[in-house]
């Protein structure tokens, strides 16, 4: 229960940071970092997937409510959490992680490369969904891809900063 509250508070904190800082700070038109996805990356693998999906919905809804982008973060969050289940099946082995005392994907699990690809793919899905709805045009297909990849790289940097600040491995 305490862990759930921790996640809720952490989620609110990330939502506030996203809407107050990352949304307002204009780094470049092609970089729009959304490091709040980090919340999904540190979710324990054994979490109830239905609860996580509904939680992601309300988390996205909160960011949308704060930032005035109704629906976009919600759609991206819900899709990310849904697809993450299948990515986890490919990247992670629950028994192996339990033996190593890990609850979510960490660098120590399979090294930097695996960790990087894992985070990059989850972030890319999130950003692609977000920017697809944001641009919402077939003619902007390459722009969507370009902005998504650049923003993923931006988000990765900030996620690493979060990791260091919070002492996560």
């Amino acid at each position: 229960m305490i862990e759930v509250i921790r996640f809720i508070i952490g989620g609110l904190f990330l939502a506030l940071i996203q809407t107050l800082i990352f949304k307002e700070v204009n780094i470049a038109w092609w970089i729009k970092p959304m490091p709040y996805v980090y919340l999904f990356l540190i979710l324990p693998l054994s979490s109830n997937k239905f609860a996580v999906l509904i939680g992601a919905f309300f988390f996205g809804l909160t960011i949308d409510a704060f930032g005035g982008s109704l629906g976009m973060h919600t759609a991206a969050c819900v899709t990310t959490v849904f697809v993450k289940n299948y990515i986890d099946l490919y990247f992670l082995d629950e028994n192996s992680m339990q033996l190593q005392g890990m609850r979510y994907m960490q660098i120590d699990y399979k090294g930097w490369q695996w960790y990087g690809v894992y985070i990059f793919s989850i972030l890319l899905i999130h950003h692609l969904v977000y920017f697809t709805f944001d641009y919402f045009s077939w003619t902007a297909l390459f722009t969507i891809l370009f902005v998504s990849v650049c923003s993923v790289l931006g988000s990765l940097i900030f996620i690493q900063i979060f990791r260091l600040l919070m002492g996560h491995k």
Binding site: L53, I54, F57, G60, L61, D64, S69, L70, G71, M72, T74, A75, V78, T79, F133
Partner: peptide, 14 residues
């Protein structure tokens, strides 16, 4: 269901 709810919001408010 949740995605549809989100997409509905997008098309409704944007």
């Amino acid at each position: 269901l949740l995605l549809l709810s989100a997409v509905t919001q997008i098309f409704r408010y944007h």
